[in-house]
């Protein structure tokens, strides 16, 4: 395993393009994005529907190859890698969190979190797999739900399993495409609190959202339109999810007393 080079950005994009060919029609979903994301950043990607956010995320996540431009992940050029090599990158360097959770339904929380290690080379021993999965679930506050199936858990809890799964292989980067899209406001804030906590512990996060409220918990906001980045802003005083949950709790208590 290559030791992460802390001096260089985790992600370097240069004039990245992605064109979809559907029959006769060409759709330029991403039309030339140049962007660096440093270690320890917490980036929100915003933009209207169809602006190319998911396409960009899929490319960053090595689920898809760009049509043009350069993409260096942790200093490694991704263009030209085959499916097997991309799979290795996803397994070792990336963690995914999806809007729809994408957990294996008839499988326990623990097994869901163990899944990425099943595909790690060299083989991770059963015991180590278990230990790491338990630790990851404890980190997202689900240490008491190891044997539960996704259907027995709330949306917020399911998303936290997905986050534990994303973390379990100690990735360079966690990518989340609208992770709070299926969640209510309070649960969304809780998830953002968890992300902030992970980010404070040094994990690099990139997430897509179309809600400004949610983006406000991030350190940097990149806005896209028609496949291009139209603004890129860093925030010093971002919102603290922990503080706001506390405020919400106070408000609830008052409402109950009244």
């Amino acid at each position: 395993m290559s030791t992460p080079n802390t001096s260089q950005p985790v992600i370097q994009l240069r004039e990245l393009t992605k064109t979809y060919q559907t029959g006769e029609v060409k759709v330029k979903a991403v039309r030339g994005v140049t962007l660096n994301i440093e270690r320890g950043e917490f980036v929100a990607i915003m933009g209207a529907s169809g602006s190319g956010k998911s396409t960009l995320m899929n490319t960053l996540g090595c689920l898809d190859q760009p049509t043009g431009g350069d993409y260096l992940l942790d200093g490694v050029a991704v263009a030209g890698l085959n499916r097997k090599e991309l799979a290795k990158l996803r397994n070792k360097k990336l963690g995914f969190v999806f809007q729809g959770f994408n957990l294996l339904s008839r499988t326990t929380a623990l097994e869901n979190v163990e899944l990425p290690m099943f595909y790690t080379h060299p083989l991770v021993s059963l015991r180590e797999r278990r230990e790491r999965a338990v630790a990851a679930l404890q980190r997202v506050n689900l240490g008491d739900r190891l044997a539960h199936h996704p259907s027995q858990l709330s949306g917020g809890q399911q998303q936290r399993i997905a986050i534990a799964r994303a973390l379990v292989n100690r990735p360079e980067l966690v990518l989340a495409d609208e992770p709070t899209g299926n969640l209510d406001t309070r649960t969304s804030i809780e998830i953002m609190g968890l992300f902030q906590e992970l980010n404070n512990a040094g994990i690099t996060l990139v997430m897509v959202t179309h809600e400004l409220d949610i983006a406000a918990y991030c350190k940097r906001i990149v806005v896209m339109r028609d496949g291009l980045v139209i603004s890129d802003t860093r925030y010093k005083n971002r919102r603290s999810a922990v503080a706001e949950i506390a405020l919400l709790d106070q408000a609830e208590q008052k409402a109950q007393l009244a």
Partner: peptide, 12 residues
């Protein structure tokens, strides 16, 4: 899809 996303290789 999930298995591939978390790093399963085509051979797996």
């Amino acid at each position: 899809g999930i298995r591939i996303a978390v790093g399963a290789q085509p051979g797996d």
